[in-house]
Simulated assay, not measured.
Amino acid sequence: MTAPAPARPPADALLGWMEGLADPTRLRLLHALERKELSVLELCEVLALPQSTVSRHLKVLSGQGWLSSRRQGTQSLYGYAEDVAPGARRLWLLARAESEGWPAVRQDAERLQAVRARRDGAERFFAGAAGAWDKLRAEVYGPGVAREALLALLPASWTVADLGCGTGALAAELAPRVRKVVAVDQSAAMLRAARRRCAALPNVELHEARLEALPIADGRCDAALLVLVLGYLDEPAVALREAARVLAPGGRLVVLDAARHADAALRRRMGQVRPGFAPEELEALLGGAGLSTARARALPPEPGARGPGLVVATAERVPRRR
């Protein structure tokens, strides 16, 4: 006895699926998302396309049932929908076979591999380092590593963003000195330690999120701090633009990071992407983020520190003209 032929989808469903696959960008998105669940920012990196373009095509594919999505912290992760209709699945298998040899799809796969390796490596590093992070930072940079950032603060009435807060050491130091601390980190392991440390501090607000997509309203903060954070980011300029966005007019951004160095072993030990920054490099990045009066200066290593010196930089968001 022969098996019955599969039911044919209604014409409008079939045409909708064909329309969804009739765009090279959407095919590239499906190739990537079938391999790995990704955020919008990660998809922008994989496809080398602007966020507006990626978001537009994600909306089309999601509306036609090609994608699943879920929340992780403050961001959405997208993936290929496992419960896609059988007819749509057959169309995708055909389209995938015909397009997997495209140069753009191969290049996307290479960039996806880099994104996966970086995400997995960062998660392993911070999960393993959370317990000993404060000791490690003090050993490399000295016990007063956050002092320069604290000295740059102004009135105690300020709301301060601690971006890349790690285990919450700086947020805990800031809390008695300012009205509100909004602390953000993308590592769940680091935030668990920060929550324990700041549990008795009611004016500390903790968020799990990427620094390139802050869960903070425009202009909410009087100051923002990035202390030994930029060296872990592939695109520090994006994080600096986000930091500038959350500043109130006249608000100040303070960056403290490692001075540029050539110690590859230290980079591996600290899990860093970049070998530090020169003062003029930080000034250029701050200016490119739309901030004014950017100033940076090198600091000598603290006594007993085994790592390179530090660079501290400040800049301000231009006040509104009256």
Rank of each mutant, 00 (worst) to 15 (best):
Lys36Trp: 02
Tyr78Leu: 10
Arg28Ala: 14
Arg70Gln: 11
Ser62Glu: 14
Leu21Ile: 12
Leu33Thr: 00
Trp66Leu: 06
Trp17Ile: 08
Arg70Asp: 03
Ala32Trp: 00
His31Ile: 02
Ser55Lys: 07
Glu42Trp: 08
Lys59Gly: 05
Ser76Glu: 05
Ala48Thr: 01
Ser55Asp: 08
Pro50Asn: 08
Val54Cys: 04
Leu41Glu: 15
Ala13Ser: 15
His57Phe: 09
Arg26Ser: 05
Lys36Thr: 14
Arg70Leu: 05
Glu45Gly: 11
Gly20Ala: 15
Tyr80Ala: 14
Arg28Cys: 04
Thr25Ala: 13
Gly20Tyr: 10
Glu42Leu: 06
Cys44Pro: 02
Arg28Lys: 03
Pro50Phe: 11
Ala32Met: 11
Ser55Gln: 11
Arg35Asn: 05
Pro24Thr: 10
Gly20Trp: 02
Gly73Val: 05
Cys44Ala: 09
Ser62Pro: 00
His31Gln: 07
Ser76Gln: 08
Ser39Glu: 14
Leu21Trp: 12
Gly79Arg: 14
Ala13Gln: 15
Thr74Gln: 03
Leu43Lys: 09
Leu38Lys: 01
Gly79Tyr: 00
Arg26Asn: 07
Tyr80Ser: 09
Trp66Val: 05
Gly16Ala: 15
Ser55Cys: 02
Gly79Glu: 08
Glu37Phe: 00
His31Cys: 10
Pro24Tyr: 04
Glu34Cys: 07
Glu45Pro: 00
Val40Trp: 08
His57Gly: 04
Val60Gly: 04
Leu30Ala: 03
Lys36Gln: 15
Arg35Pro: 00
Pro50Trp: 06
Leu67Asn: 06
Leu15Met: 15
Gln75His: 14
Ala13Cys: 11
Ala22Arg: 12
Leu67Lys: 01
Glu42Phe: 10
Lys59Pro: 00
Thr25Phe: 09
Leu15Gly: 01
Gln75Lys: 12
Ser69His: 07
Lys59Thr: 07
Val40His: 11
Gly65Tyr: 01
Lys59Asp: 10
Leu43Glu: 10
Ser55Pro: 00
Leu47Cys: 09
Glu37Ser: 13
Val54Ser: 06
Arg35Val: 07
Arg71Ile: 07
Gly20Phe: 05
Gly79Thr: 02
Glu19Lys: 13
Gln72Tyr: 06
Glu34Ser: 12
Ser52Lys: 12
Leu49His: 06
Tyr80Met: 13
Leu29Asp: 10
His31Ser: 13
Gln64Thr: 01
Gly63Met: 10
Ala22Pro: 01
Gly65Lys: 06
Arg35His: 08
Arg28Leu: 04
Gln51Gly: 11
Leu67Gly: 06
